[in-house]
Design a protein around this nucleic acid. Sequence first.
DNA 1: GTATTTGTTCAAATTTTATTGAACAAACCG
DNA 2: CGGTTTGTTCAATAAAATTTGAACAAATAC
Lengths: 171, 171
Amino acid sequence: MQELDHGTRQEIDSIEREVLAVFVDGVRVLGLPPSIGEIYGLLFISQSPLSLDDLVKRLKISKGSASQGLRTLKSLGAVRETNGNGNGNGERRTYYEPAVELKRLVGGFIREQIRPHLDSGRHKIKRLGDLANGESDPDRRKFLLERTDRLDHWIRNGGRVLPIIQRILGQ
Amino acid sequence: MQELDHGTRQEIDSIEREVLAVFVDGVRVLGLPPSIGEIYGLLFISQSPLSLDDLVKRLKISKGSASQGLRTLKSLGAVRETNGNGNGNGERRTYYEPAVELKRLVGGFIREQIRPHLDSGRHKIKRLGDLANGESDPDRRKFLLERTDRLDHWIRNGGRVLPIIQRILGQ
DNA sequence: GTATTTGTTCAAATTTTATTGAACAAACCG
DNA sequence: CGGTTTGTTCAATAAAATTTGAACAAATAC
């Protein structure tokens, strides 16, 4: 029996190749590994959801990579598992489809990759302020407090800008 | 002769160590190497400008690293060369001080690291649209055009948001 | 129950990136 | 001029991140 298209078609055609390249470049800017760009990219140009096994076969990546990549993408809210898995009858494999709303992608990235850094930064900087206060030389202390204060402003401004970005990208 | 403070003090004290750690983490988020975080961090808590040689001695990094790191930081507009080099009389070494205005730092980062990617992305996506138009299957073509169109919107929105970020962070 | 399919985990291997250090160039000095 | 200082470049090395693949677990089928 000839398989219906379910990502089971083996080869990556030239459009697909270009789309993958775009996403590999794209995720690199965000500090994510190439495999994640490939996985998301392939889902993005597939008309039907793909299983982990489809990704392994078509991208020629290991099951381990595909599994970990999907986990990251799920945590970012960039892929969804489909319930209605596409081909109809009793099927226990999980199929994945991409989230394509920019708002959602940006929101997930901010939540998972930016907020945590801002938060931990805030803590470290608070601690820096304490250390600076303990400096005995008054001149040096003044300088250090001025600099830690500046760092604190940076972080605050970063925090302020995020919701605005999200609002703008939410159309 | 006992050297006046010019970064020539050898050791890194505990506050300095913490500040360096903050910056190393910070630049990592931006996709820059640790040495750059250390260099900028040390300049940031130094009360007087430092020379390349000061950075090498105090951070215990190679001259090559320091030179390349400074080049990157200069290109980002994150450090300036000082003319009045601090210690007064005829001195041919170059001294560096950090740019500490968030606006300037963000502006440099956007200009050097973000805009180029957006621009090259725009081109690649334009090309994708052409490829999609060449697709023979009408159903597939419709789908591909829809997706490339979506990519195009993403990039456009990204471009729109940058000046707004800059404006907000410019105080 | 055993066999099979689907997916995860994690140590080892690979690939990529960052750093070193030595050779080189340029500028100044005497 | 030759000697010294300052800084850059880039091939080799070290370090870090990514990917693989095999062992394992969980779920279904028979």
